[in-house]
C-alpha cells in the first residue's frame, strides 16, 4: 500500500478484461508514440505551429485594428489566419503537412506486420480481421485528433493570456470545427496509406507511392488542369461574362478533385467568417450584400460539400482496403 497510485485502483478495476479491439488500439497508440517517425512529425507540426503563431501574434495588432476587414473582431480566428507573407498561415501549412503525417502513420501498417511474421500470428488469435484494420486506423486518428485538439486549445489559451480578450462561442466552434476538419483531412491520407500498405508487399513501395500521390496533388495537379484547360477550352479573354463564369466553374470543379483544395477551401471558410461563397459570384448575386461575417451555421453549410467530399474519399479508400485485406492470403 506504499504507492499513492493505489487509490486509483478502483478507477481501473483489475478484473476488467479489454476487448481485442481495445487491446490492439492501446498497442498501436503506444507504438506510434514511441516511434521516431511520429516524434519527427510532431516536432515538424509543432515548429510550424509556433512559427505561424509567432508571425500572427506580431501582426495581430494591425489586423484587429483594420476596420475595413469585416473579420477584424474575431481575435482568435485572426490569430490562426494572420500572416505577413513571410510565412504561410497555419492551415496552409497543415494542407501539405497533414498528408505527410497521415502517410507517416499508415504506410507500413499491414505490410510490415506481414513481413515480420506477426500478422499471421496475430490473426491466429481469436480476433476478427477487420478489427485489426479498424484498430490501426482508429489508433492513428486518435493520436492526430489529440494532437490537433491540444494545439488549438494551446493556441486559445495563449491567446487568452496574451491579449486578455474573452473568446466568443462562435469563435470556439469555428476553431473546433477547424480541428475536426484537419483530422478528417489527415484521416483521408491515413486511409489511403493503409490501403497502399495492404496492396504493396514492401513498406518502401507503399511509402513512395503514397508520397507520389501526395506530390502529384500538391504540385502537378493544378499545373496539369491549367494546361489541359488552356488546350481544350477557349481563351477566357475572348469570352462573354457568363461564359467566363462557366469557365471558372469548370476549372474549380476540377481543382476540387484534389483533397488539399477541398481542405484549404473548407478551412478558409471556417476561419474567415466573411467568406460567403467558394465559387465565383455574379454582380447580381452580390448586389445588396453587406460585407459582414456569416454566422457559424452558414459557414458550416458552405463547407458541407467539402467535408462530405473528404469523408467520402476516406471511406472509399477504407472500403477498398477492407476489400483487399479480407480475402487476402495471410501466409508470408
Amino acid at each position: 500500500m506504499g504507492s499513492p497510485l493505489v487509490y486509483f485502483n478502483s478507477l481501473w478495476p483489475k478484473e476488467h478484461t479489454y476487448s481485442p479491439f481495445e487491446v490492439m488500439v492501446r498497442k498501436e497508440v503506444g507504438d506510434h508514440i514511441r516511434s521516431w517517425r511520429f516524434i519527427v512529425m510532431l516536432l515538424l507540426v509543432l515548429f510550424t505551429f509556433a512559427g505561424a503563431m509567432y508571425v500572427s501574434l506580431t501582426n495581430l495588432g494591425k489586423a484587429v485594428q483594420n476596420v475595413n476587414d469585416p473579420d477584424h473582431v474575431f481575435v482568435y480566428l485572426k490569430l490562426l489566419t494572420t500572416s505577413d507573407n513571410s510565412l504561410p498561415a497555419f492551415h496552409i501549412f497543415i494542407s501539405f503537412l497533414g498528408p505527410l503525417l497521415g502517410i507517416a502513420l499508415g504506410f507500413d501498417a499491414v505490410n510490415s506486420e506481414k513481413n515480420n511474421g506477426t500478422l499471421v500470428r496475430l490473426l491466429a488469435q481469436p480476433v476478427y480481421r477487420d478489427q485489426l484494420l479498424l484498430a490501426k486506423f482508429y489508433a492513428a486518428l486518435l493520436l492526430v485528433g489529440v494532437l490537433f485538439l491540444s494545439l488549438v486549445l494551446l493556441m486559445v489559451g495563449a491567446g487568452l493570456m496574451l491579449t486578455g480578450v474573452p473568446i466568443e462561442a462562435a469563435e470556439l466552434f469555428r476553431i473546433l470545427a477547424f480541428a475536426v476538419l484537419s483530422v478528417i483531412y489527415v484521416g483521408f491520407w491515413l486511409s489511403l496509406s493503409i490501403g497502399l500498405s495492404v496492396a504493396f508487399r514492401h513498406a518502401a513501395t507503399s511509402a513512395i507511392t503514397a508520397i507520389g500521390i501526395w506530390l502529384f496533388f500538391t504540385v502537378f495537379y493544378q499545373i496539369v488542369v491549367n494546361m489541359v484547360a488552356r488546350a481544350v477550352l477557349p481563351d477566357p479573354a475572348s469570352l462573354q461574362a457568363e461564359q467566363v463564369m462557366a469557365y471558372n466553374n469548370i476549372l474549380l470543379s476540377f481543382f476540387r478533385v484534389a483533397p488539399s483544395q477541398l481542405y484549404t477551401d473548407a478551412a478558409t471558410t471556417l476561419l474567415m467568417p466573411s467568406v460567403r461563397s467558394l465559387g465565383p459570384l455574379t454582380m447580381e448575386q452580390m448586389a445588396g450584400a453587406i460585407p459582414a461575417p456569416l454566422p457559424f451555421r452558414e459557414s458550416l453549410m458552405i463547407v458541407w460539400p467539402q467535408v462530405t467530399g473528404l469523408l467520402a474519399a476516406s471511406t472509399v479508400c477504407f472500403a477498398g482496403t477492407y476489400f483487399l485485406f479480407m480475402r487476402r492470403e495471410i501466409r508470408s
Binding site: W12, K14, E15, H16, T17, Y18, P20, V23, M24, K27, R121, L122, Q125, P126, V127
Partner: peptide, 11 residues
Amino acid sequence: YIGRLNGIAER
C-alpha cells in the same frame, strides 16, 4: 499482448 487479445483478466 497475446494474453490480452485472448481475454485474460488484467489481474
